[in-house]
């Protein structure tokens, strides 16, 4: 009986961890299974920054985009993912930069290419403002 409880607990924990891991990467393409070389990855960077960059919303502004509406990604209750995979194109991404109870929603317009990885990084700007940069991984 004890062994059964142990196995069940471990299985539940593994399931919970896997679920969380799946939630943390937002994939901006529904019902498609795409390999890494066909998508652009946005990943968080906290290098020399006091903020963690979450993702609040994304809007595809590519000329050939069929849907140009802003899509909210996560929220205050559910939390914000820090990773996102995108199809190649031009996007306006609004980030949720947070540290402790301080947060800001800076936006960046990015052009992403398939097979590339990009880092998002929030930073302090003058007059108490917060900015964000998105740069391609070397």
């Amino acid at each position: 009986m004890k062994l059964l409880v142990k196995v069940l607990t471990t299985a539940l924990m593994a399931l919970a961890v896997t679920s969380c891991a799946n939630l943390s990467t937002y994939k901006n393409y529904k019902n498609k299974k795409l390999s890494d070389d066909l998508v652009a990855k946005i990943r968080p960077s906290t290098k020399n920054s006091v903020f963690t960059p979450g993702i609040a919303s994304v809007r595809n502004t590519s000329r050939d985009a069929s849907d140009k509406k802003t899509k909210s990604v996560g929220g205050a209750m559910a939390g914000y993912p820090v990773k996102m995979n995108l199809l190649p194109g031009r996007y306006v991404i609004t980030f949720y930069c947070f540290t402790g109870n301080t947060y800001a929603f800076p936006s960046a317009e990015v052009v992403v290419e398939e097979g590339s990885t990009y880092y998002s990084r929030c930073f302090n700007a003058p007059e108490g403002k917060v900015g964000v940069e998105v740069y391609e991984a070397e």
């Binding site: 930073f123 302090n124 700007a125 003058p126 900015g131 940069e133």
Partner: peptide
């Protein structure tokens, strides 16, 4: 100082 991307 403020960098070229506006970072303090």
């Amino acid at each position: 100082w403020v960098s070229e991307i506006g970072e303090l």
